[in-house]
Simulated scan of single mutants.
Amino acid sequence: MDKILNIRNLSKRYGPVQAVDSLSLEVPKGSVFGILGPNGSGKTTTLGMLLGVTKPDSGDFSWFGKPLNFETKQKLGAILETPNFYPYMSAVDNLKVVAQIKEIGNANIDGVLKTVNLNTRADSKFKTYSLGMKQRLAIASALLSNPEVLVLDEPTNGLDPQGIAEIRALIKDIASQGITVIIASHLLDEIEKVCTHAAVIRFGKLLFCGTVEELTGHEGVVEIGSEDLNLTRMLLEKLDGVDSVKIEGDMLLVVLDKKISPSEINKHLVAQGIFAHHLVFRKNSLEKQFLNLISNS
């Protein structure tokens, strides 16, 4: 997979605080890439350097194989802080102001409003918008220039459950159009439900970088109960997609190393004359893996 962003030994210090410490990672093209870490871990500082807002002390990075310049900036859409719009102006008029600042014309305004599902409220004043609608308008403004990459810093911060669900659905929709999305977040649930890849950082240091599946360690665990656990274990150990099988109490714990549905496992057992009286799939806990990384760093 092509890399859209390469970061090499990026560092930034604010007085006695080492905000980012020799950070190196790569972002695959077409991914939804989450930068995950506790508050104060250096996520926003990292994005600031990548977007040219903050100058790094050392290290470098490249977008599309090139340094950050006018050409590469044109391919980026970003929201780093709470966006400011004119409260007494409509969404359309606010986006016209943004388009004028970016010198890109008004041709995409209707399209981006439709993308963020604000087309029916396009003429409403910004001050009448909910927090979730304001965030969607901000994303619309970032999409005005048809960017290849969308960068979002804590996109669901402060939103209610409905607003969070709307932003998550919107991010997935944007990614489905071929746009690479980079998200900084401290929310595990957000990374797990939206992202394909993730980097975990703490105190500015990289603790992990890879796919979300790699971060959780495996694809999940299936609990199985049957009349003959030893025979069931023997049959499952030979099944493609099964990493390990162990007996725990009156159950088998089947660890999966790739995606295989519980129904496929059940079908395999039935074909061998084994009928499970208990079969439950448990997805591996991202929270557990994250806490392990943080506590061991």
Rank of each mutant, 00 (worst) to 15 (best):
I167C: 09
P161C: 06
P262S: 08
Q74C: 13
D173N: 14
Y86E: 04
F275K: 14
K134D: 08
G52R: 12
M1D: 01
N146P: 03
S263Y: 13
T82R: 07
K114Q: 14
E248W: 13
Q18C: 09
V32R: 11
F290M: 07
A271M: 08
L143F: 05
I109V: 12
G65P: 02
H197S: 00
I247C: 09
S226W: 14
E166C: 01
N84H: 09
G273W: 01
F203V: 13
V222D: 04
A184N: 15
S176C: 01
K205L: 06
L76C: 03
L207V: 10
G15E: 14
N284M: 11
L131E: 04
F64E: 03
V151G: 12
R168M: 04
A175R: 02
A140F: 06
I164S: 03
V255I: 12
S185W: 06
D257S: 13
L80G: 00
K288I: 06
S22G: 10
Q177W: 04
D160T: 08
L5K: 07
L231F: 05
G132W: 06
H277C: 10
T156L: 05
E81H: 02
L206N: 10
C209D: 14
N284P: 11
S62F: 14
G34S: 12
L25T: 15
T72C: 12
V27K: 04
Q18S: 12
I182F: 09
A107F: 02
T115S: 01
R136I: 08
K288Q: 11
A184F: 05
R233P: 12
L269H: 00
D60S: 12
D60I: 13
L269A: 03
L25A: 12
N284Y: 12
F64P: 03
A99T: 07
V245S: 07
T44M: 04
K3R: 07
D250H: 13
S176W: 05
N106D: 11
G210V: 11
S90W: 03
G42D: 06
N84A: 12
N9P: 09
A199V: 15
F290C: 06
V280T: 01
D160W: 02
N6C: 10
F208G: 03
V242S: 06
P67S: 04
Q135V: 00
G42N: 09
L235K: 13
Q162W: 07
L159C: 03
N108L: 04
I265P: 10
L23A: 05
N39M: 04
I109R: 07
W63D: 11
N117F: 11
G52V: 01
A198R: 12
V20S: 00
N69K: 09
I4F: 04
S145T: 02
V181R: 15
G42R: 11
S176K: 04
S11N: 05
A175K: 00
K29P: 06
I167R: 11
Y86M: 09
S295I: 06
S141D: 11
T156G: 01
K288F: 10
S185C: 08
S24H: 05
T82F: 14
S31D: 03
L118F: 07
S24Y: 07
A276I: 01
N6Y: 02
Y86S: 09
Y88C: 14
P262D: 12
